[in-house]
Amino acid sequence: MHNDKPLHQLHAEIDGRVDAIRAERADWLCGKGCDSCCRRLADIPRLTAAEWDLLQDGLKQMTAARLEDIDRKIAALAGTHTRPVVCPLLDEASGACPVYAQRPVACRTYGFYVQRELGLYCSDIESQVAEGMLSDVVWGNHDAIDQQLAGLGDGRPLTEWWRGETGGIRRSPAA
């Protein structure tokens, strides 16, 4: 187990920026019911060890059947180079993230942060930016987030963590 205090501090900083944007714009596109970013990932999600430890807390709450479904999706992902990627954790029927509270930093920041003036958001938000509709938004600085995340250690693809040294996730799934 890793020291999770720095990760929780980083989450609090991200949550503060996200909450500030949402407070200014009640109609913000990113929210419950929108899963387009989860269905069009540029690559397999990367997580630090601290993020993986936290993610496992959410995985432990899932049924064995749900974990088997995720296992199949991750196995398929590991063997393909097709992009975009659908997040293997996404419940595609409901469009919900079953580990939302434990989701990685990349998922927490997407739609609310920019990196070197490059928006890290979907084409819907990009369209609003292009039309000048979001000129008053104070975006989060993803370069600073990346720097803090690097301080938590190297990231590895979810597929590697899943298959890791233990041959799978360290869990006692719910029945």
Rank of each mutant, 00 (worst) to 15 (best):
I14N: 06
D146Y: 03
A75V: 12
A65P: 00
W52Y: 10
N141S: 11
I125G: 03
L120K: 04
A12L: 09
C87F: 07
R25E: 05
E165I: 07
L41T: 03
S123Y: 04
A144V: 13
L55D: 02
M62I: 06
G167C: 10
R25N: 13
D15I: 10
A42V: 11
R83W: 02
P104F: 08
T63L: 05
K32P: 05
D43M: 11
P173F: 07
Y100L: 01
A174R: 13
G95Y: 06
P84D: 09
R22I: 10
A93R: 09
G140L: 06
R171L: 15
E24A: 15
G155Q: 13
V99R: 01
V137T: 07
D35W: 00
R116T: 08
D71S: 14
T48M: 05
D57N: 11
W161D: 01
A20P: 00
E131N: 13
V105M: 06
A101G: 09
L67W: 02
I70L: 12
T48H: 03
G16P: 00
L7R: 06
G151V: 07
G111H: 04
I145R: 00
G33Y: 05
G167D: 11
L54R: 11
E51V: 07
S123E: 13
W28M: 07
I145L: 04
K73G: 10
A42N: 14
C97D: 07
Y113L: 05
